[in-house]
Write a protein that binds this DNA or RNA. Sequence first.
DNA 1: GCGGGATGTGCATACGTATGCATCCAAGAC
DNA 2: GTCTTGGATGCATACGTATGCACATCCCGC
Lengths: 343, 343
Amino acid sequence: MSAPPRITSLDVARLAGVSQSAVSRVFTPGASVAPKTAAKVRAAAKTLGYRPNSLARAMITGKSRIIGLVVAYLENQFYPVAIEKLGHALQAQGYHVLLFMASNTEGEMERLVEDLLAYQVDGIITASVAISNDVTRRCSDAGIPLVMFNRGQPGSGLSSVTSANALGGRKVAQFLLAGGHRRIAHISGWQGASTGRDRARGLIEGLAEAGQQPHAIIDGMFDRDTAADAARTLMDGADPPDAIFVGNDHMAFAVMDALRAMGLDVPRDVSVVGYDDVPMAAWGAYRLTTVRQPLMRMVEATVETLLAQIDTPDRAAQSIEIDAPLIRRASARCPEGDTDAGL
Amino acid sequence: MSAPPRITSLDVARLAGVSQSAVSRVFTPGASVAPKTAAKVRAAAKTLGYRPNSLARAMITGKSRIIGLVVAYLENQFYPVAIEKLGHALQAQGYHVLLFMASNTEGEMERLVEDLLAYQVDGIITASVAISNDVTRRCSDAGIPLVMFNRGQPGSGLSSVTSANALGGRKVAQFLLAGGHRRIAHISGWQGASTGRDRARGLIEGLAEAGQQPHAIIDGMFDRDTAADAARTLMDGADPPDAIFVGNDHMAFAVMDALRAMGLDVPRDVSVVGYDDVPMAAWGAYRLTTVRQPLMRMVEATVETLLAQIDTPDRAAQSIEIDAPLIRRASARCPEGDTDAGL
DNA sequence: GCGGGATGTGCATACGTATGCATCCAAGAC
DNA sequence: GTCTTGGATGCATACGTATGCACATCCCGC
């Protein structure tokens, strides 16, 4: 039942009547082995139930084929779906994902980095905006390739993959203006993160191009409660907005819930636009007009960049931005006779 | 920038003027080291930036301190949140999570098991209903402790942690009957999974105790589209139900969306009850009455069981069921003057 | 028939750490 | 003072694999 006898390449070698090296070569793609011996070895391996020990292999080659994936709050649906795609993409490339849950406490971050290095990960993906700058810095200082997913860190010399957040913000501005909105408020993403800042900047610039400026801006901190409070504050004011651009879908749902709880109709009383296009945005309860982050393309760019950096250590870091289209649904009033061609 | 010089315990030993064994002992809790040498070693380690190599350690000890976590579709919010909690709990115990995304294709399953074994994981948690039986069997055949999270496999001799699904189904039956419903339909979870079957059985038994039987039962396959279709079929029929118990929250949201799209009001026209109590169930758009799976307790039971099995290989498997309370919200008509004391 | 390249195989070693064993030293008991 | 005891340390080895090197073998062309 228990006490499984460890089967090693040596056991297989003995049974097959070859050397341990031969066994190793059979399981090493591209090694030189005669078809006949390969067959013998595979047969022996099968009868014994032998599997090459990845850890031992990692010691020799210096490559663990493990990618450290650092995430935080998974309640925002964007990240679970991203993890799923990242996991599949990496598995397809023969890599595996060691998952690290990031807490916010300083001591935890310390341990996180320790563990990341201790397991000899070949590369790191940080998939959460909430990860502090010094964590990324220390990992890359240790010489481990790192890509930030859905977050940038300007001037850090670190690779990142995001959507074109500023441009996305502009698109929202243009779309809302074209829809006749004139009091456009913004419940922003956390301003400590590039993602939050860029989207806000884009909106502001987009409005400025039309000679307008935001009706109000409140930092929603990527948090549901904070965003809902912000929405109530905005609508209770003397001069409520006629549209709210929310920094991500996760908050936008909370905002819509709060607005409806106030007896307001979306979009008749106020338009709401989100950012991300998580699956839930398409669900009947919200039908959220939002900016779509092209998840598959972001994932592909992320693993491509990371693997390239692993293969070529001295490669320069790159910051990739992927265009994010606006998806019109039912939460925002649309321009008259609007078609997709407009943007 | 690149080419990070690998710092080994030997480097530290040389700098500290001690043997490599001494360095090892300093980083091995419970080993016998003089405080003075420990200080020297730690100092040397710090200046060199030394971190013990977990992989090399794993080779010697035979314990990788890695847990394989197998998951599938992360769109159902229950699993991301579970992963988050599982990850934290395991990290707190000094374990780490190697994440495996399960596909459905046969070949992928094969590779999955190979990889799981190759990385010498100390234990396995399967956190998805959709994982085929032979995967779990082959892993446990290999002598690796395994716990199924949110799924049972009766008669398999494998450990599992679930909520008391059958009892939960009964609670729903009693609650709906008390609320005056008489045509209670069920859009069940996938009947290939114990979770889906037990909840359905509980409902049926609960109704039977009152001399009733289900108005209709349709397998929703844990899938949004399938569930939505089922809801439309039910309501379009000649004799529509006055209540629908849906096999999990994920489908329940789809059902509510579908019902509303048909112009029906929940709960005035029809009551809806879910199962899981994912965070979204409390959101304003749904306010779903549902059975709460006590996630923290399930997670604690899972890691406790798994670690016990790792420490004591010959330990008997156990199937743990945790009581799941019904959470009353706004999606189902409540019994007159109902209080929580009733159930 | 012989030389030479190509191909396949075994030997030995290395990766970085943990640990049994022997040794050594200091402290304490008498 | 010696003997004992126990803690601290070093030496050597083992974990399971990959790979450079040397060598054996084979085949082909001349």
